[in-house]
């Protein structure tokens, strides 16, 4: 294996062009355990962390641009970001221990393409986009469209994610992310649920609800969103959210949880995430 640390996007693309089996990485917190577990070793490792554009947060003109290799601990330490996206902050802060937080990145969390990734449901709930670079130029893709199957993304072999784009949430909006793990830390989500809501008075004007770890990819729960839109938060709407989330879940039995469990808890967490997001939105300007 050969290690390379390009300092520009173009340099990285050049390496990728030379050997499409090269592997880009940021924190390697998934890559190294996967190689240990017997996944084929890439011929070339491309460390993206030395590319300035890929590390850091920028907030300009009501838009956030977050480098794909930015450590999640950097994101979750940004006061303005926390205020704007408390749920996405929670989701990003749940990716592993403090040690992992200093390495893990949204780019890695997304491109590892695990349906249990914590940051991705919250990114989708906030309608995030990624800028993807390739030798034929850059394109912008919805985060929701990146993961197509467990371990598989829609990106081509010569592409990589450069940065994430997020709009400031509209007024009276907030998000929340909750996950269920058997321990309090150091686990992969058994179920994850993100909600982003915009209020108009007491009513929900707009809602996005996304589940993780309950299907081959992330699940947007449109029925739950519809059940909330134009309604107040009450027992009936919450029951509808929970019911919709349970129905939308299409989980598997594995070492981390059962089908029955994941389905039931998807409903619980979706409901709780909506409650939390709405509470926050009430307090938001």
């Amino acid at each position: 294996m050969k290690y390379l640390a390009p300092t520009t996007v173009d340099e990285a693309l050049e390496v990728l062009r030379g050997d499409p089996t090269s592997q880009v990485f940021a924190g390697a917190t998934d890559l190294i355990p996967q190689i240990r577990a017997g996944r084929p070793e890439p011929a070339v490792l491309i460390d993206l962390k030395r590319i300035k554009r890929l590390v850091g947060l920028n907030h300009n003109n009501a838009k956030w641009v977050v480098g794909a290799a930015t450590p999640t601990s950097t994101i979750t330490a940004n006061e303005a970001f926390i205020a704007a996206f408390p749920g996405l902050t929670e989701a990003s802060g749940l990716i592993g221990s403090d040690q992992i937080q200093n390495r893990s990145s949204w780019g890695g969390n997304l491109c590892n393409a695990s349906p249990a990734a914590d940051s991705v449901p919250a990114l989708i709930a906030n309608n995030a986009y990624v800028v993807v670079a390739s030798n034929s130029g850059e394109r912008t893709v919805k985060v929701a469209d990146v993961v197509v199957a467990p371990g598989r993304t829609s990106l081509r072999a010569d592409e990589f994610v450069v940065e994430f784009l997020l709009d400031d949430p509209p007024p009276h909006s907030a998000d929340a992310y909750l996950r269920l793990i058997p321990r309090t830390e150091m686990d992969i989500a058994v179920v994850g649920a993100a909600a982003a809501v915009t209020l108009q008075g007491n009513q929900i004007a707009k809602a996005r609800i996304v589940l993780g770890a309950v299907a081959p990819t992330f699940v947007r729960v449109h029925e739950a969103e519809a059940a909330l839109t134009g309604q107040t938060i009450n027992d009936n709407t919450l029951a509808a959210v929970a019911q919709a989330a349970r129905c939308a879940a299409n989980p598997i039995d594995d070492k981390r949880g059962t089908i029955e469990y994941r389905r039931q808890v998807a409903g619980v967490l979706a409901k709780r995430a909506v409650i939390l997001a709405a509470q926050r939105a009430q307090g938001a300007s």
């Binding site: 058997p182 309090t184 830390e185 150091m186």
Partner: peptide
């Protein structure tokens, strides 16, 4: 063994 790692063999951590 499906959970032969400290990630999935879940021993208590301090925050538990």
């Amino acid at each position: 063994m499906e959970n032969a790692s400290f990630l999935d063999y879940r021993m208590p951590v301090a925050s538990d």
